[in-house]
């Protein structure tokens, strides 16, 4: 019983750290509004990394998907990407580019982590568009660029935003360890126990968690918003029944 109370008590301290300023052991102010600077740095870092990752991965994924080339390579990047630990990637940049600014190093490392899901989803999204619709589009005389813009891109949007969502949440989470190499994000209270104390550690963790979940929810809403109406209908219960119908139809077609 008392253990539970103690636990609640620590969360209580943490929540008070989030909202009210106090002095740390060294006499400098932390908590409350001082968290805003950390939050700002966290967002700045995440946005920079995501911007860079999207600028690289989206066009590449769309073009590779359109041409259907390098399928194995594209799919593999996401498998390999998952296996590379974020802390190793950040350390690699710091170890090999000791003279470049830490913010830049971490941005590049996070962008590298963010690229595979966006690239793969854009690629798969385009590849998964109904190839018959693409064939019909080409047959009607749409140029390559028109096929991408009018058919493949709109149909791939839900998956593309799925990739962006995965990467964003991942980047926000990983930006938490940036203070290990001197970029002072919301992870600072987590790794600098001696400065912020336990309520700082837990408090900042709460903020990071809320941030990640907010990104997930927000981007899910965007994902729904960009999903073309006709695609939602296809997926609905009625649509699912139809696609089952489609399967039987295809079987008739291939019968000798």
């Amino acid at each position: 019983m008392s253990a539970t109370f103690a636990a609640l008590g620590e969360f209580g301290d943490a929540i008070s750290f989030i909202f009210s300023e106090r002095e740390n052991q060294r006499g400098s102010p932390v908590g409350g509004s001082h968290n805003l600077a950390l939050l700002w740095e966290h967002l700045k870092l995440s946005a920079a990394a995501m911007g860079l990752a999207m600028a690289v991965a989206l066009p590449l994924g769309l073009i590779l998907g359109h041409t259907g080339r390098f399928s194995f390579l594209t799919i593999s990047t996401s498998n390999v990407g998952r296996a590379v630990p974020s802390v190793a990637l950040i350390a690699l940049f710091v170890a090999f580019f000791p003279r470049s600014p830490e913010f830049l190093n971490v941005t590049l490392a996070l962008a590298l982590l963010a690229i595979p899901p966006i690239l793969t989803n854009a690629y798969v999204g385009v590849r998964q568009t109904d190839r018959d619709a693409v064939d019909a589009a080409r047959g009607m005389g749409l140029s390559g660029a028109q096929v991408i813009r009018q058919v493949e891109l709109p149909l791939a949007l839900p998956l593309i935003f799925g990739g962006i969502k995965t990467s964003t949440v991942n980047v926000i989470a990983t930006a938490t360890i940036a203070p290990l190499v001197g970029v002072v994000t919301l992870g600072d209270p987590l790794v600098a126990f001696s400065v912020y104390g336990r309520e700082g550690q837990i408090g900042a963790s709460i903020i990071v968690a809320v941030l990640a979940i907010a990104a997930e929810i927000g981007l899910s809403a965007v994902q729904r918003a960009v999903t073309p109406e006709g695609i939602k209908l296809e997926r609905g219960p009625e649509g699912r029944a139809r696609s089952r119908f489609g399967l039987t139809k295809r079987r008739i077609q291939t019968a000798p």
Binding site: D130, D132, A136, L142, L155, E229, G230
Partner: peptide, 29 residues
């Protein structure tokens, strides 16, 4: 592309654009 815009093309799988209304599908060319 010009040639194809002058030739109607219908395939077994139909290949309607699922994200466009019937009217928009018909209006493509």
């Amino acid at each position: 592309d010009e040639l194809r815009r002058e030739i109607g093309y219908v395939i077994q799988q139909i290949g309607l654009f699922p994200h466009r209304t019937i009217a928009d599908n018909i209006a493509t060319v």
